[in-house]
């Protein structure tokens, strides 16, 4: 099925796409048909810079278990960073 459901959010950082590194400003997250992964549905993340055109995109399509593991690992790394480091990075 096409779930249609999509979370979109502002992000700040950089991504590496087909033409090298670029600033990423938006993200879309959705569980829907993949383009390439061999599954009916995957958790898809697009890191985008709409000002630079549709091709300014870093895309991943992960099976649900991988996506959960990755999300858990991201949160764990942020929470285990040395005290003050995350707060400091958000000030710069």
């Amino acid at each position: 099925m096409c779930t249609y459901q999509t979370a979109t959010l502002d992000v700040s950082g950089s991504g590496k796409g087909a033409d090298g590194w670029f600033p990423v400003t938006r993200a879309s997250v959705y569980f829907d048909h993949p383009v390439h992964a061999p599954a009916e549905h995957t958790l898809n993340v697009d890191l985008l810079n709409p000002d630079r055109g549709a091709g300014a995109r870093v895309a991943v399509e992960l099976d649900a278990a991988s996506a959960r593991a990755l999300a858990t690992a991201i949160i764990a790394m942020l929470e285990s960073a040395p005290p003050g480091l995350v707060e400091e990075s958000l000030r710069t």
Partner: peptide, 20 residues
């Protein structure tokens, strides 16, 4: 309109981000 000349998957991602 969202993605003139873009590859189909990039265009679909742009259209989705724009609300379809």
């Amino acid at each position: 309109r969202e993605a003139p000349g873009a590859s189909p998957d990039d265009a679909a991602a742009a259209a989705r981000a724009n609300g379809g």
